[in-house]
Amino acid sequence: MKQFIERHTFWAVMIMIAVIVFAWALFAVWPEWLIDAIGRKKTFVNTLFNGITLGGLYFIVASGFTLVFGLMRNVNLAHGSMYLLGGYIGYEVAEASGSWFLGLIVAFLAIAITGVLLQVLVFRRMEGDDLRQTLITIGISIIAADLMLAVWTGTTYQFDPPEWLYGAVNLPIISVIKSSGDAVYIKYPMYRLSVLVVAIAVGIALWLFLNRTRIGMMIRAGVNDREMLSASGVNVQLVFALVFGIGAGLAGFAGVIGGTALSIAPGEDVRYLLASLIVVIVGGLGSVPGAAIGALLIGLAEQFGLAYFPTYGVVLTFIIMVVVLAVRPQGIMGGR
């Protein structure tokens, strides 16, 4: 930290100014001219929180995607289908058992098992042939989308989360001060905040798993040098199957979380595939911290785009991707 300030004094000052401006915009009551310029504070704060929570959801989806790629160099384009399938399975289980949490757990396990089976039955047979693996995942996603449409039809499904996740909480942020002198606090849905908490928990859990356990150590070694890892006596195939299981399971897990925050319907698979793709392109393929940064950026860009320039919202996301590719083709946190 100190070293950074000494080396890049200019940037340190700029970052500090940005943080102060941001904190002011967040906590102060906005003056008239600012409201005239960019609209009400409530819109801004809501968009900001929507962006951050959406980023959290994207992180859960994309972390699995990037984990699988990092170790196996396998771009799983069926990741979106796994998200959607997880959502449907979670919905069925939650409906049948009446427990939303059971749905969440079963969705994770079911998709994790699907992932392990895919790895063992299909991808192991064509190791090292990236292009063919990718084409196969495309084929799987075509079939999966069609079969899911056949089973669950085009209806939109809405989850029924537990009581205490309903409702809104007051954020400690004042939106306006009424003429009577009372401060009006901004309300935000409880469930969306818990999505953020879950995303942070997933991030911390992944970090602990990768950095503090023996298996995590093997995975990191495998990312650096697969052959060497197997030469040192580790059963690489087992590690691969495990990682694929976790990566796919995270997609299914996100299916229930995201399905509750928004809804589950055909076409969502493509949306989350696109999100994962852009998040990992921006953040750097194979890097979990990169996925967190990318997810936050893309989530914010999407929500601010939607709120402030509705018909050109996608362009903002696209511009971020192009700029990152132009400056750092390997992504913000990408190695190599």
């Binding site: 160099r73 771009v75 384009l77 990236d130 292009l131 990718t134 493509v270 595939l273 696109l274 793709l277 852009i278 990992v280 392109i281 393929l285 509705p310 018909t311 050109y312 919202g313 996608v314 362009v315 996301t317 696209f318 991707m321 192009v322 590719l325 132009a326 083709p329 390997q330």
Partner: peptide, 28 residues
């Protein structure tokens, strides 16, 4: 855009562009 990266990245970037274009023409 995609030429500085190789192989599998090309598929990902072009797919992202294709999907982004689809969403763009739909909302514009």
């Amino acid at each position: 855009i995609s030429v500085r990266t190789e192989g599998i990245y090309t598929i990902m970037i072009t797919l992202a562009i294709a999907v982004a274009f689809f969403y763009f023409v739909r909302q514009n």
